[in-house]
Computed example of a mutant assay.
Amino acid sequence: MSNKRSPSGQGPSHRQLRVGELIRRTLSDVLNRAEIHDPELNAMSITVGEVSCSPDLKIATVYVMPLMGSVPVDQAIAALARNKAELRHRVSQGLTLKYAPDLRFRPDETFDRLDDTRRMFSDPAVARDLAPDEDEDGAAGG
């Protein structure tokens, strides 16, 4: 019996989620404590929003965003990519995996999607569609 998930399966496995969260916490701690030997990176306030791992745990995609727009996101990603080897080494110290995952940094667009969703719900046409019908309320109450 095979216990493997199919590539088109239902999403990440429990192990992928657990390893991703461990990587996220480790990177957050390292960046928060300014433990990297790059003054430019240490001067940035970067939040690590999410880490998603490939099924074989060899690639970790790290979604980051500078706090309060302190620096452009592409500049923060470039600084992280420049220090990828040192960050990978720090992550591997905190994990008990056969291989240290390759880190790939991407902008975290979660907040942009939240703003778009809020904008959509504040649209009068959408608000009208979401409002309860008065006919249904009167019929249900009587």
Rank of each mutant, 00 (worst) to 15 (best):
A76Q: 09
T110N: 11
H89G: 11
K84T: 15
V51H: 03
R25M: 05
R33T: 13
D29V: 06
D123L: 12
P72F: 08
D74G: 03
R118G: 06
L114Y: 04
D112M: 08
A34M: 02
R15P: 01
R113Y: 10
T26K: 06
T47E: 09
D38K: 12
E40I: 04
R119N: 13
P107I: 02
L103H: 06
S52D: 12
A76V: 08
T26F: 00
V73Q: 15
S70A: 14
Y99E: 13
I77W: 09
N83C: 13
I46G: 05
L57P: 04
M65V: 01
F121T: 13
A100I: 02
L87D: 01
T117G: 07
V19C: 05
R82N: 11
R90D: 10
M68Y: 08
P55R: 13
L57D: 08
P101L: 06
K98N: 04
E109Q: 11
Y63G: 05
R33D: 11
G94P: 00
N32V: 01
L114R: 13
R118D: 04
S92Q: 09
T110I: 08
D38W: 07
G69E: 00
R90H: 12
L114K: 09
K84C: 14
E50T: 07
V71Q: 08
L67S: 07
E109V: 10
R118M: 14
M65P: 00
L41R: 12
I23G: 05
T47Q: 06
V19D: 04
A76D: 07
L31V: 05
G69Y: 00
H89C: 06
S92Y: 02
N32Y: 11
L114N: 08
S92F: 09
R25F: 01
T61V: 10
E40R: 11
V19K: 02
A60Q: 02
R113L: 08
R18L: 10
I46F: 07
S28P: 03
R104E: 08
